[in-house]
Amino acid sequence: MDSPISEASALSSRMLAWYDRHRRDLPWRARPGEVADPYRVWLSEVMLQQTTVQAVAPYFQRFTERWPTVQALASADLDAVLHAWAGLGYYARARNLHRCAQVVAFEHGGRFPDTEEALRRLPGIGAYTAAAIAAIAFDRPAAVLDGNIERVISRVFAVEDPLPGSKETLRRLAGTLTPDLRPGDYAQALMDLGSSICVPRRPRCILCPWSDACRARALGIQEDLPRKAAKAERPVRRGIAFWLVNPEGAVLLRRRPEEGMLGGMMEVPSTPWLAGPAPELADAIVAAPVAVPPATAWRPLPGVVRHAFTHFPLELVVAAAVAGEGWRAVEGVWAPVDRLADFALPTVMMKVVRHALSKT
């Protein structure tokens, strides 16, 4: 599709003028006249992946207070990073964040590469994040395409093919408008426009600096775009979590495998999370992920722990027991109940903890 805008430079100039008047004040954003810090740009972009600005802001503040430089983050213990990340979800991001910091600190002398191509070779940095860092931190004319920008571009060009299949089309079209002058500010301007004006429902078109160039508005379909492919059904997954307390009152935790969901995080041991009915407790005990003395009596606690992941909802029954003789040989970490907050427990496991404490 050809651009509906004959003067792309005029459009980008108009967008930058709008940004200079309406830019958001965000903790990771350089103020006018300041040079952007690549570390803060990178950290914020990783945190913002599939997470809102409101949710990220306090995490960003705590991270930068604790680890103000990429070298400090690289030297941090992974468990400390995972614990600080708890609540943001998508924990693979936290592991990649730590690995990326180490690569930058120890292989690149503490300096982030300044091109999209080089940035994409770093752990956890994909096409969007590389483009955002290149544009915002290094003023490279990169076509940045986050969810807000996808919405703006799909409406300006009236792209009716549904996402995610239209991503490459949107990226190409975005590139036709990306200016050589202030590309970082331009990318952030589109982010802000999508956040405050070109919103999903009831867009405030009368306030948009591109309203006269928007093809979707001319067609009256701006609120219908971007179209999205129908989501596949998300079957409920179920499992059993094992709340095992030793005679000293400590609870058994274990570390999840590095690869896979919640990789490297601590958990209350549980069965695999599978679609279908919950496993029978007697069968689950036989294959329990905790090696407990045979005489230990497990009992299901009333109620169910529910948690919604992006790709599926989860229901966990919690079975509780007191460990008998031989508990010291059980593989895992015995955590005092009053110190559970010190461990890198993801949100779903904190729900298990609260449920168990309220029912035992």
Rank of each mutant, 00 (worst) to 15 (best):
R328A: 13
V103P: 03
Y19A: 03
L207R: 09
G194K: 07
L82S: 06
R306E: 15
E34L: 06
P200H: 06
A76P: 05
A72Y: 00
L225H: 03
A127K: 11
P27F: 11
T178N: 10
L345Q: 05
D146L: 12
A329C: 01
A275L: 01
A284C: 10
Q222S: 14
V251C: 08
L145S: 02
L48E: 06
D77W: 01
W210Q: 12
N246Q: 05
F60C: 08
P123E: 10
F63R: 02
K231N: 09
D2S: 13
P209S: 07
E107F: 00
P235H: 03
S270N: 13
V292F: 09
A187I: 07
A17Y: 06
G249C: 09
S196Q: 14
Q188I: 02
E259Y: 02
A130G: 14
D283Y: 00
R121F: 00
P141D: 09
D2L: 12
F138E: 06
A118C: 03
E160V: 13
R306Y: 08
C198N: 10
W334K: 07
Q49Y: 08
F312L: 07
A232G: 13
E325I: 13
L177K: 04
A10E: 13
G276L: 06
A288Y: 02
A30S: 14
E45L: 08
A308G: 10
A142Y: 02
P123D: 08
Q50N: 12
D79H: 05
P279R: 05
R66L: 11
P247D: 09
V41L: 05
S196R: 13
A8I: 09
F106L: 11
V337K: 14
D185I: 01
D146C: 13
A72E: 09
A308Q: 15
R234N: 08
R140M: 07
W18V: 10
Q50T: 05
A143Q: 03
G147Y: 03
F309E: 11
R238D: 01
C100A: 13
Q222L: 05
G165K: 09
F157S: 01
A105I: 00
W28G: 06
R234A: 15
D114I: 01
L357T: 11
G194H: 07
H83N: 11
R354C: 05
A118P: 02
P164N: 05
E160F: 01
A216K: 01
P162Q: 07
L43K: 03
R99L: 14
A8V: 12
E116T: 11
L274T: 15
A57V: 15
L316W: 09
Y186Q: 10
A282D: 14
H307V: 04
P294I: 08
I197D: 03
C100R: 00
A320P: 02
G109W: 06
A230R: 13
Q54P: 00
V352Q: 01
E331D: 15
L190P: 03
E107S: 11
R155W: 02
E248M: 10
L262Y: 13
D192N: 11
P141A: 09
G124A: 06
H307L: 02
N246Y: 02
A134V: 09
G332P: 09
P300D: 11
H307C: 02
